[in-house]
Amino acid sequence: MPGSASSPWSASLAREWARLRADRWDLAMLGWIPLALYLLTWWIFSAGLARDLPLVVRDLDHSAESRSLVRMLDQSPGLKPVLAASDAEALAQLRAGRAFGIVSIPARMGERLARGEHVTVGWAYNAQYPSHTGAMTRDVRAVVATMSAGAELQGRARRGAAGVQAMQQVEPVATRPMALFNESGSILPSLALPALWSLLHIFVTLAALTAVGRELRNATVPDWLHAADDRLGVALLAKLAIPFGVFLLQGALLVLVFGALLGWPILGSALAMMLGSVLLVTAYLALGACLVAWSGSLRSALSACAFITAPAFAFSGQGFPMLAMPGAARAWAEVLPLTHFLGLLNNTWLGGAPLRYGLGALAALALFTAGFGAAAYLRLRARVRQPDSWGGT
């Protein structure tokens, strides 16, 4: 009923829902487009571990030992060796992108091992692909170290050392590696999951700025405010309410898929993740509204959105350590809400951290929400009284 407390809110929500239903692309940006990109991202990383990465083997020995080394490389899950007849052929495969490294087995390796001499196996790799060759280097080193230890054990055994004694002599100081948090080393929780939340934050920002920006561009501000009984706060909150609910549901879907279906449950505080998800969505809704409020132009706001959100994942510390970034890059990373959310995600989801370890990130996200929200409201309060600023692109 007109004049009731709920009337402005209900009327504003109804108007926004009608607008979304009339614009299939805005509706798609809340629905099937982000869901399709989430699915595509999961599919890209669905293997979990990189397997059968090709490398070229240049065998100059052709002995039983060199053939054994090739077999061991082939048995390593992450490697797929291919023999090359010449150095030129090996380099050509590397340059063509059909392989990422070259293992060079020196001539007379078998004879030299039998005499107890030192042998060096070459490993040249394409450092343009650090994520590929980093894993391959680890596997190649493990294979060569295993073969080296076996050859040394055989030599010591021939000299009369017992098996256990020979092993201790070969490796007097040993390392016992133990993976914590993501013991399998899968990239699904460590890379795909942060990438999916990064996609979500882009769509959240776009939804907010397009919803508000269309009112300014189409000069429909009076109708927008009239539905809310000329209450800007109600009009703004109602406009952002539908994206808020939709993207919270999408966040819950990510939790369900990774936790229940893919076997990566939240090991830490579920409350911290829930609060973090809510605050991530509110922070970027507020940022989107702030961008269009201060720019006054939907086109300019979209450009600013792309500038801020598209490279945000690169600054978040997921691919390159934040501590190793230059000061200016790290400062920029710290003013991005996504950085704080992904830190919370890493510590809580797989790290098993309790709520108290996430309070700093939650406080930062709450400050972003309040700051961007206040800036958006204050600027819009002035802009809705300036009809000459409406109608631009």
Results as ranks from 00 to 15, higher is better:
residue 1 M to H: 12
residue 4 S to G: 14
residue 13 L to A: 01
residue 21 R to D: 06
residue 24 R to W: 11
residue 25 W to M: 14
residue 29 M to T: 08
residue 34 P to Y: 10
residue 35 L to H: 08
residue 40 L to G: 14
residue 41 T to M: 12
residue 51 R to C: 06
residue 57 V to T: 06
residue 59 D to C: 08
residue 60 L to N: 14
residue 69 L to T: 07
residue 70 V to N: 05
residue 71 R to I: 09
residue 71 R to L: 15
residue 73 L to M: 12
residue 73 L to P: 13
residue 73 L to S: 09
residue 78 G to K: 05
residue 79 L to I: 14
residue 79 L to A: 10
residue 84 A to Q: 06
residue 87 D to C: 01
residue 95 R to Y: 14
residue 98 R to V: 03
residue 99 A to Y: 09
residue 102 I to K: 02
residue 102 I to H: 02
residue 105 I to R: 05
residue 105 I to C: 08
residue 106 P to E: 07
residue 111 E to T: 12
residue 112 R to N: 10
residue 121 V to C: 06
residue 127 A to I: 13
residue 133 T to F: 03
residue 138 R to F: 10
residue 139 D to A: 15
residue 143 V to G: 04
residue 144 V to W: 02
residue 145 A to K: 12
residue 151 A to G: 04
residue 155 G to V: 04
residue 156 R to W: 13
residue 158 R to V: 07
residue 158 R to K: 15
residue 159 R to N: 12
residue 160 G to M: 12
residue 162 A to W: 07
residue 167 M to H: 10
residue 168 Q to G: 04
residue 172 P to C: 08
residue 180 L to V: 12
residue 181 F to P: 00
residue 184 S to D: 14
residue 184 S to I: 04
residue 198 S to E: 01
residue 200 L to P: 03
residue 206 L to R: 03
residue 208 A to C: 05
residue 211 A to M: 06
residue 212 V to N: 00
residue 213 G to W: 01
residue 216 L to W: 10
residue 218 N to L: 15
residue 223 D to S: 11
residue 224 W to L: 01
residue 224 W to A: 02
residue 232 L to C: 02
residue 232 L to M: 03
residue 234 V to Q: 03
residue 234 V to D: 01
residue 238 A to M: 09
residue 238 A to F: 01
residue 239 K to P: 00
residue 239 K to Y: 01
residue 243 P to S: 09
residue 243 P to L: 06
residue 247 F to M: 09
residue 249 L to F: 12
residue 251 G to K: 02
residue 253 L to S: 08
residue 258 F to E: 05
residue 259 G to P: 03
residue 267 L to C: 04
residue 275 L to S: 15
residue 277 S to V: 14
residue 280 L to T: 09
residue 289 A to M: 04
residue 291 L to G: 00
residue 293 A to L: 00
residue 296 G to D: 02
residue 296 G to Y: 04
residue 300 S to Q: 09
residue 307 F to M: 12
residue 307 F to T: 12
residue 309 T to E: 07
residue 309 T to M: 07
residue 317 G to A: 04
residue 321 P to W: 06
residue 322 M to L: 15
residue 324 A to Y: 03
residue 329 A to W: 15
residue 332 W to M: 11
residue 335 V to M: 07
residue 340 H to L: 01
residue 341 F to G: 03
residue 343 G to K: 06
residue 346 N to V: 05
residue 347 N to T: 07
residue 348 T to G: 01
residue 361 A to M: 11
residue 364 A to R: 11
residue 365 L to D: 04
residue 369 T to N: 03
residue 370 A to T: 05
residue 375 A to S: 09
residue 380 L to M: 10
residue 380 L to V: 00
residue 384 V to D: 00
residue 384 V to W: 03
residue 384 V to A: 02
residue 386 Q to D: 13
residue 387 P to W: 08
residue 389 S to Q: 15
residue 392 G to N: 13
residue 392 G to Q: 13
residue 393 T to Q: 13
